[in-house]
C-alpha cells in the first residue's frame, strides 16, 4: 500500500532526496570536475594556476622517468597487495562461511575491529612491531639469528605487508557474502555426482563466489593505489607512491595543475584496471 501511495507523491520524494543530491552535486561532483579541469591549465608560482589550456602537465608526467617510475611502482604495489589480500581474505571468508558455532560472531568482530581503528593506528602498530627495538628484532636477536637489529622499516616489503594488513578486512566481507549466499545443496550434489572435494571447490564454490572476488579486489586495489600515510611512514625515502606525490606537489610546492594531473592519472588508471578486471572475470566463466 505504501508503495502505491509513494508513486503518487513525487514532490515528497524529491524533497527527501534533495539534500543528498545538492550535497553531492555542490561538494563532490562539481569540485572534483573543477579539480580535474585544473590539470589542463598552466602552472603559476604566484597564483593557483594560469587560465591557459595546456597538456604540458600530462606530457611532463608521462615523459619524465621519475614520475613514470612512481606510476609503475604504485600500480605494481597495488597489484601485489590485491593478490595477497585475495589469497588471505578468501581463506578467512571461506573459514567464516563454513563455521556454524557461536564463535562466528566473535571471529567476525575480530576482523572488523582492526578496520574500525583507522589507518594511522594500524600503521603505527607496524612501526612498533618492526622498529629497531621492536618485537620482531628482539625475537630475532633473542633467537640468535642476528646480532644487531636489522632495518625492517623503510623497505618496500614492509609497506606491502602493512598494506595487506590494512586492506584484508575489505576483501573478507564481499567474499564472505558471496559464499554464504550460495545454495548449500550444490556441494553435496557435486560430491554425489562423484566430484572430489578439491574439484568441487575449484569448479563449483570458487566460480560462484566471483562477484565477491571482483568487488573485494576492486575495493582493495582502489584504496591501496590512493594510500599516502602508510608508504610515507613505513617506506620512508625508499617507497614513493602517487598519493605521496600529489601530497607533496600540492602542499609543499603548491603546483596545483601538476598535482591535479597526477590525481587524474591515478583515477583513470584505477578505473581502467578495475573495468578490465571486471571484463576479464566475466569472460573467464
Amino acid at each position: 500500500m505504501t508503495q502505491e501511495k509513494g508513486h503518487r507523491s513525487a514532490p515528497f520524494a524529491a524533497a527527501l532526496l534533495a539534500p543528498v543530491s545538492i550535497l553531492y552535486l555542490v561538494f563532490l561532483i562539481v569540485p572534483i570536475g573543477y579539480f580535474l579541469a585544473v590539470s589542463f591549465l598552466k602552472y603559476s608560482p604566484e597564483r593557483l594556476y594560469l587560465p591557459e589550456l595546456t597538456t604540458d602537465n600530462y606530457r611532463r608526467l608521462l615523459s619524465d622517468g621519475y614520475y613514470r617510475q612512481i606510476i609503475y611502482d604504485t600500480f605494481r604495489i597495488s597489484a601485489i597487495v590485491t593478490l595477497f589480500s585475495l589469497i588471505f581474505g578468501y581463506t578467512l571468508a571461506y573459514f567464516l562461511s563454513r563455521m556454524k558455532s557461536a564463535w562466528r560472531g566473535i571471529l567476525m568482530f575480530l576482523i572488523i575491529a582492526p578496520l574500525m581503528t583507522g589507518v594511522i593506528v594500524r600503521t603505527y602498530g607496524w612501526i612498533v612491531l618492526l622498529g629497531s627495538d621492536g618485537l620482531v628484532n628482539r625475537l630475532l636477536i633473542g633467537l640468535g639469528l642476528v646480532s644487531s637489529p636489522i632495518g625492517l622499516l623503510n623497505t618496500e616489503p614492509t609497506v606491502i605487508v602493512a598494506l595487506v594488513h590494512i586492506m584484508l578486512p575489505y576483501m573478507v566481507f564481499p567474499i564472505f557474502s558471496s559464499l554464504v549466499s550460495q545454495d548449500p545443496h550444490l556441494v553435496p550434489a557435486a560430491s554425489t555426482l562423484g566430484a572430489r572435494p578439491l574439484r568441487t571447490f575449484f569448479e563449483v564454490t570458487l566460480p560462484l563466489s566471483r562477484s565477491g572476488i571482483v568487488m573485494g579486489s576492486a575495493l582493495v586495489f582502489t584504496l591501496t593505489a590512493g594510500s599516502i600515510v602508510t608508504p610515507e611512514l613505513l617506506g620512508g625515502r625508499n617507497v614513493t607512491m602517487l598519493g605521496q606525490t600529489i601530497y607533496q606537489l600540492i602542499l609543499s610546492t603548491f603546483n596545483w595543475p601538476l598535482g591535479a594531473a597526477v590525481a587524474a592519472i591515478l583515477v583513470v588508471c584505477q578505473f581502467s584496471v578495475i573495468s578490465l578486471y571486471f571484463r576479464k572475470m566475466r569472460r573467464a566463466y
Binding site: L17, V20, Y24, F27, L28, I29, P31, I32, Y34, F35, V38, L48, T222, L223, A225, G226, I228, G243, I246, Y247, I250, W256, G259, A260, A263, L266, V267, Q270
Partner: peptide, 26 residues
C-alpha cells in the same frame, strides 16, 4: 539506481574528495 548513486563518495578515492574541497576553499 538511487542506492548506487548514494554510494558515490565511496567510489572516488578520498584524497580526491579532500583535494577538491581544498580547491573549493581557495
Amino acid at each position: 539506481i538511487g542506492r548506487s548513486l548514494a554510494m558515490l563518495p565511496m567510489m572516488v578515492p578520498h584524497i580526491l574528495i579532500s583535494l577538491s574541497l581544498l580547491l573549493l576553499l581557495t
